[in-house]
């Protein structure tokens, strides 16, 4: 029961924080939590399963748009809309993943990059359904059983989503499935020789993490109460990759460190360099790959070893 107690304590502390923050800071905090959630999923896909995909953020967008469209245009009740939205993402992910597993290395990245860009084209041209370039706005989270979750309570929902994603991925990572993913990443031939079905392992990892991104996107849809194409563009797909690499790919602590650092860095840097924090991200990315491939978390390990 010790691990369970630890999860409960984390949930309590992170939730309590929401009630201590102003409404502006709650907004920042929610987005931080969502970035961490996304980075955890992307870490499993890229860091553990070794797939370079740029579609993760597009699935976040598909989740966000689908919940809004299904709830407010198709008129589905929220729980049904969530299930239908996830099913849609799973279907899209399978359609991409099954043929893509034949692609190695960076070719998967470019196929998913095209998918991500195509998604933006569809959003811009979707007419009344997607709201075009302006996106969709003026909707509110519907009440569930007469209760409307608002303010810090909605932050608690996102805390639970983040911790749930983390627990789920941590358990998978420590199981035969996580080892199979790492084996496929390190040497597909050797993995196959040990009985790992390489194609199936890749498809499951891609579909699962894409579905998790979609669920995070559904939560995001009610953070700003608006969804529009620029949010889900390539910039953020790159940022997600940078977060995981700079933080330390393959470890949850790395993904969390990277997401927190890169999300908060612009707040610190903007008085100094305005909107040019992306330049710093680029330099950090190159520096991380060249000097510390294990990222911030590897740096922390090295410092701790030196101190000991």
């Amino acid at each position: 029961m010790k691990p369970l107690a630890r999860w409960l304590a984390a949930a309590l502390v992170l939730s309590a924080l929401a009630f201590a923050l102003s409404s502006y800071h709650n907004d920042v905090y929610r987005k931080l939590l969502l970035w961490v959630t996304l980075a955890l999923g992307y870490n499993f896909l890229f860091g553990v399963a070794g797939q370079v995909a740029f579609s993760h953020f597009a699935f976040y967008g598909i989740g966000a748009y689908s919940i809004v469209i299904l709830t407010f245009q198709a008129g589905l009740p929220l729980p049904l809309a969530i299930v239908a939205g996830v099913a849609l993402c799973v279907a899209v992910a399978l359609a991409v993943a099954i043929p893509s597993t034949r692609l190695e290395g960076f070719y998967l990245a470019l196929a998913t990059l095209a998918l991500a860009q195509l998604f933006i084209v569809v959003l811009n041209e979707g007419g009344a359904v997607t709201g075009g370039a302006g996106g969709l706005a003026d909707y509110r989270l519907p009440a569930i059983l007469g209760v409307r979750v608002t303010g810090p309570w909605y932050t608690v929902v996102i805390v639970l989503l983040m911790l749930g994603t983390m627990a789920l991925l941590a358990r998978l990572d420590r199981s035969w499935f996580g080892r199979a993913c790492r084996a496929v990443r390190d040497s597909p031939e050797a993995a196959a020789a040990m009985g790992v079905n390489v194609a199936r392992t890749k498809v499951i990892a891609f579909t699962l993490t894409s579905a998790l991104a979609a669920v995070a996107g559904m939560a995001y849809a009610f953070v700003d109460n608006t969804v529009n194409p620029p949010i889900f563009g390539l910039e953020n797909a790159f940022l997600l990759l940078f977060m995981v690499i700079i933080g330390g790919a393959g470890r949850q602590a790395g993904a969390i460190a990277g997401a927190v650092a890169l999300y908060l860095l612009p707040f610190v840097l903007s008085p100094l360099i305005g909107h040019h924090h992306a330049l710093v991200f680029g330099v950090l990315m190159v520096a991380a790959i060249l000097l510390q491939p294990r990222g911030l978390i590897g740096l922390y390990d090295a410092l701790r070893r030196r101190a000991a």
Partner: peptide, 10 residues
């Protein structure tokens, strides 16, 4: 394997 193929990240 003739040329060892261990999983380097584990």
């Amino acid at each position: 394997f003739q040329h060892n193929r261990v999983f380097a990240g584990m």
